[in-house]
Nucleic acid binder design. Structure first.
Lengths: 210, 210
DNA sequence: ACGTAGATCTTGTCATCGCCAAGATGGCGG
DNA sequence: CCGCCATCTTGGCGATGACAAGATCTACGT
């Protein structure tokens, strides 16, 4: 028996197959049957593991948010280390660039993160893991705003609105890039320029706030 | 014959049925067969008219952009009239609020506007109508920026980057609202506050630009 | 050691979907 | 009056997601 009847690690194997299909052919290529074929199991095996297609997508969204969270945190840490934590606003810009960079590099993965209607997790299996993963991702941004506030780069007060503003701006740019609504070349400085403008505007806008 | 064999206005009837299904049940409810059922014709009739499902969605996207363009233009005109064209930046804010308002009021309609992978127009039928409709929509924003520039509210220069910045911000907020990534109540002032912050930041950011 | 209960995976089936081919119907110009 | 052609229908094909029922393996209690 090359493979035991009980695969032993089918859960992980199915997710890997699903990621390959997603990055290769987009969300439409992620089919329960195609995932099963690539993993070398029967067509009903994925359903049993994830409770249906929505569950598979939900599991992928959780992993996607974890990957994105790691990249954002890494961008923050790296920038803060290089800058010697002198201007945390620059690190916040780096986080924004990492956000857009993730969307650029893995457009299909980024796309499914913002599609609640695709994922349909059975809460008896997932217990709100999706929301928790998204929350952890947002917290990276929010912590960055807090540091900026402590450094005096952003007005004091509740950090959520400012984090939301920054997130909204980065998300808008990322969505419009991945959906092809705007088209900036790989090395087009407009992307950085837009991000910079957004954050630069943020700083000056905040200081003049009522 | 209650209905003639040649419907006479099937094209419009199919689109109306499709819009009803979309606004009621989302994009997944828009099925060629369901559209045909609602219009009372056979299941293959829609394919003949639009060249497939992608063509139907493309036709809807064109109509959607036209509706959105009308609302944006109306918001601009109304605001300019009320303000006596004293502060065109306020009119630009009104356009942004109208953009987000459209996404709020018709989330499914707004969603399909930014999904190039859904629509698959046969160019022998559409001849780039989708891109033209989207361009006309963006022009409302760009013209607003030009007026703001002429009034001195925004730095002179090519208006596209500023229009892009404003569009990105509004689009990000709209997407995150429609996708449920953030949740602001219907009367939550945060929406207006975010829009105001975006534009306010825009103004002050621009003036301090290099 | 053994046997049963439950987890894991397979096989088979069904309704629905998008698409295509072929045929039926009706308007329109010669 | 006739034939052409757009319009619409009928029928069918392959693929998909979900479900039911069965086969196979693991684990745990005695």
């Amino acid at each position: 028996m090359s493979r035991p009847y009980h695969h032993g690690d089918l859960h992980r194997a199915l997710l890997q197959a699903a990621w390959e299909l997603l990055d290769e052919g987009g969300v439409d290529a992620v089919t329960l049957r195609a995932v099963a074929r690539r993993a070398g199991v029967s067509h009903a095996a994925p359903t049993h593991h994830f409770g249906g297609k929505g569950g598979l997508l939900a599991a992928m969204v959780v992993q996607g948010y974890e990957a994105l969270t790691g990249e954002l945190q890494n961008a923050w840490d790296t920038s803060m280390l290089a800058e010697g934590s002198r201007d945390p606003l620059l690190a916040l810009i780096a986080v924004g660039r990492a956000y857009v960079g993730f969307a650029r590099r893995r457009p299909h993965a980024f796309t499914i993160l913002g599609r609640p209607e695709l994922r349909n997790p059975r809460e008896d299996i997932f217990h709100g893991e999706v929301e928790a993963a998204a929350e952890r991702c947002f917290l990276v941004l929010e912590r960055g705003v807090v540091v900026c506030q402590e450094a005096g780069a952003i007005d004091p007060g509740p950090p959520q609105p400012w984090a939301l503003l920054a997130w909204t701006g980065a998300h808008g740019l990322a969505v419009m890039l991945t959906e092809g609504l705007i088209d900036l070349g790989e090395d087009d400085p407009s992307e950085d320029q837009l991000t910079m403008m957004m954050l630069l505007a943020l700083r000056h806008g905040l200081q003049s706030r009522r």
